[in-house]
């Protein structure tokens, strides 16, 4: 944007503010990771202790006693599969809305309006639907019953499609039409055009949608809590096993939370490159 030479004092102010923002964003997570290494005696004490003899007991407790890694793998499986469904179905639908104006905006509006219904009023019907599906043959075969991954995958796909479609429509509309028309003139079928020309160009935008969908699936609590019991509970439900009659075991909770953040963080860092290019989708247009 503006490349005007900037007064040095002004730029130090800028970096001071950036530092403040980074501190505000990172401090709670830093303190959480720090607490995950604290022995129980050093956690609930006033004043809070910065220096202590670190221990891995909390991680041992979370991983061995409470089998927390199983919750992380459950969440990973459910979130990744849901994200794949959302991205695939979302991209197809978004391309149709972006290019062919299907439904003239009304279907788009309906899709977003499904997000406006509070999840709590929907959770009991879902519970009953998945209970009944789970009892049928296909249900068992496709693992769609209660306390089965299918129930969560379908719910998460349902709840993230609206956001994904709206985001993808704006990405697709930034791809110039001429590229497609020339490909069609070369005799490619519509599907080939979509696969060969449009999707690669929109890939960065799709990556961004995938990241945010994964984040939303990863953070979901209510459906995971109602639709699963034990074998397929996710991270947000698994944290409950650290609530005891002696209160919340802050050490293991911090360890579990840190374990839960890692996969997400690694994924986002890996996708960082795509995110930058994705969100700068306009580059093609410029």
């Amino acid at each position: 944007m503006l490349q005007r030479p900037v007064h040095p004092a002004f730029s130090t102010l800028r970096y001071a503010l950036i530092l403040l923002v980074v501190l505000f964003a990172a401090f709670p997570i830093f303190w959480m990771i720090l607490t995950s290494f604290k022995p129980p005696g050093d956690i609930m004490v006033s004043p809070p202790r910065l220096f202590f003899s670190p221990t891995l007991d909390n991680y041992v407790h979370a991983i061995v006693d409470k089998d927390f890694l199983r919750y992380v793998t459950n969440t990973l499986i459910v979130s990744v599969i849901s994200t794949v469904f959302v991205v695939v179905l979302g991209s197809l639908a978004a391309y149709s809305f972006a290019r062919y104006n299907t439904g003239d905006g009304h279907i788009l509006f309906f899709i977003l309006s499904t997000k406006m219904f509070p999840a709590i009023a929907v959770v009991l019907p879902y519970f009953l639907i998945f209970r009944d599906i789970g009892r049928t043959g296909i249900g068992q075969f496709l693992q769609i019953g209660l306390d089965k991954p299918g129930a969560l995958i379908i719910s998460y796909t349902m709840f993230n499609l609206p956001f994904a479609i709206w985001l993808l429509v704006s990405f697709f509309q930034d791809i110039p039409r001429e590229l497609e028309d020339s490909a069609r003139l070369d005799g490619l079928s519509r599907l080939k055009v979509l696969r060969k020309v449009v999707l690669p160009l929109a890939a960065p935008g799709i990556a961004v949608t995938a990241i945010f969908t994964l984040i939303f699936c990863w953070n979901e609590f209510l459906f995971a809590y109602i639709l699963t019991r034990k074998t397929w509970s996710t991270v947000t439900v698994g944290v409950e096993s650290f609530f005891t009659l002696q209160g919340i075991l802050w050490g293991p909770v911090a360890a579990a939370a840190t374990l839960a953040v890692l996969p997400m963080l690694l994924f986002v860092l890996a996708m960082q490159r795509w995110m930058v290019r994705g969100l700068t989708f306009g580059a093609v247009r410029g």
Partner: peptide, 11 residues
């Protein structure tokens, strides 16, 4: 048999 009980209670 499945027993639903309070989390972390004297596990």
């Amino acid at each position: 048999l499945t027993w639903s009980t309070i989390a972390g209670f004297y596990t």
